[in-house]
Design a protein around this nucleic acid. Structure first.
Lengths: 200, 200
DNA sequence: GACTATAGTGAACTATCATTCCGCTTGTCA
DNA sequence: TGACAAGCGGAATGATAGTTCACTATAGTC
C-alpha cells in the first residue's frame, strides 16, 4: 500500500505541451486514413517530431491510442447527452440518432475501431471513466426507449458496444459494396420492437 | 494468354498426401483455438512436420488459410442446400437456421473470421468458386423468404457477408459478456419484415 | 547571461514472424 | 534392389515495427 504523495504537478513546458498536441493530432489524422496499421515512426514524422518525443509523452503505442479513444468517447457522450436533452424526437428516434452519430464518428477513427474489435482491454483501460459515463448515459437512453414500448424489452445498454464492434468490422473491411450505414439500419430495425415495413 | 498445358497431374506421394492432411488439420485445430495469430511454426510443430514442409504444400500463409476458408465455405453451402431442401419450415425460418449454422461454424474458425474481417481478398481468392456458389444459393434462399413477405423487401444476399463480418468481429473480440448468438438474433430480427414482439 | 531540469532526437536494439535454402531422407518404379 | 525424383527439416535470413538510450538542445528561472 503506497500513499501517493501529493505531487506538485508541474505544468508541461511550453514546447512539450505544443508537441504533445501535435502528436495527438498527427495520430488522429493518420488513424482517420482508413488503416489501423499506423506506425509510431509515421506518427512522429507526421508530427514533425522524433520518435523519442512520442515516447516521452506516451509510454507505449497503446497509451497513445488510448488517448484517442478517450477523446472519442467524450464525443460519444456528448452525442448521448444531446439525445437525452432532445425533447422533440421520440425516445427511440433520439437513441437512433445518437448511435448514428457515434458510428459516423468512429468511421474516421481506426484507433477506436481497433479498440472495439480487439476486445483491446489494454487500450480501453485508458478511457475507463469515459466508458463508464457512456454506459450510464446509454442506460438512461435505452431505458426511456424501452418505456415508450419502441425498443425491444430485452435490449440492454450493454449490447451497444457489441453491436458497434460489429459495425466497426464492416467499416474496417472497407469493401466497396459494403455499406455500414445499411448495416446500422438493419441493427436499428432489429432493436425496434415492431412495426411492419416501418421506415427508420 | 497462356494455355495451360494439360499436365499429367502426378498424384502426391503417399507421405506427402499424409502430411498435407496433417498440416490442414493442425491449422484448423489451432485456428479453432480462438486467436487469429497462429504462426506457421506453430502449425508445423503441431502437425509434427518442418516449416519447410508446410511451404512445400502451400506457397504462403494466405494460401493455407485460403484452403481452410474454402472448406468452410463448402460447409456453408451444405447448410444452405439443406435449408433449400427443407420443406417443413417457412422460407425465413430456413434461412435463419442456415445462417445460425454458418455463424456457429465460423465461431470455431479464426481463419475464416479473419478472411471476412480483413476484407482479405487475398485469402478469399482461394475460395472463389465456393463463394460464388454460396452467393447463388443465398440468393435463392433470400428470394424465397422475400416472396413469402417475411424478409424485408430490400434485403439482398450480398448483405449476408457484411453481416457475418460484423458477427465475426464480435466472436473474435471474445469479451465475456458479449454473446454472438444474441448479436445474430438482433440481426435476424432486423432482417424480418415485421411482427411485433415476435420470437425468432 | 548562466544554470539546469526538462524535453527532443534518431540511430540502434529487440522481438516477432513469414519465408527461403540446401543438405538429407524416402517413396516409387523399373 | 538401385536410382532418383519428390519430399522433408529446421537453422538461417529478411522484413517489419515497437521501444530504448546516450547525447544534444532549450525553456524557465535567478
Amino acid at each position: 500500500m503506497t500513499t501517493t504523495p501529493i505531487e506538485t504537478i508541474r505544468p508541461l513546458r511550453a514546447d512539450a505541451r505544443r508537441n504533445r498536441a501535435r502528436i495527438i493530432d498527427a495520430a488522429r489524422e493518420l488513424f482517420a486514413g482508413e488503416q489501423a496499421n499506423v506506425q509510431m515512426d509515421d506518427i512522429a514524422r507526421h508530427a514533425r517530431v522524433g520518435v523519442g518525443t512520442v515516447y516521452r509523452h506516451f509510454p507505449d503505442k497503446e497509451a497513445l491510442m488510448g488517448e484517442l479513444v478517450r477523446q472519442r468517447f467524450d464525443l460519444f457522450n456528448e452525442n448521448l447527452r444531446h439525445a437525452l436533452a432532445d425533447e422533440r424526437s421520440g425516445a427511440f428516434a433520439a437513441l437512433a440518432t445518437a448511435l448514428r452519430a457515434n458510428v459516423a464518428s468512429v468511421a474516421e477513427d481506426a484507433a477506436t475501431r481497433y479498440a472495439f474489435m480487439s476486445g483491446g482491454e489494454r487500450v480501453f483501460a485508458h478511457a475507463a471513466p469515459e466508458m463508464e459515463q457512456f454506459m450510464l448515459l446509454a442506460d438512461e437512453l435505452v431505458g426511456r426507449a424501452r418505456d415508450t414500448g419502441e425498443l425491444r424489452d430485452d435490449f440492454k445498454a450493454g449490447d451497444i458496444p457489441m453491436l458497434m464492434c460489429g459495425i466497426c468490422a464492416t467499416i474496417g473491411a472497407s469493401k466497396p459494396d459494403w455499406d455500414w450505414q445499411r448495416h446500422l439500419d438493419l441493427i436499428l430495425h432489429g432493436m425496434h420492437r415492431g412495426g411492419v415495413g416501418r421506415k427508420l
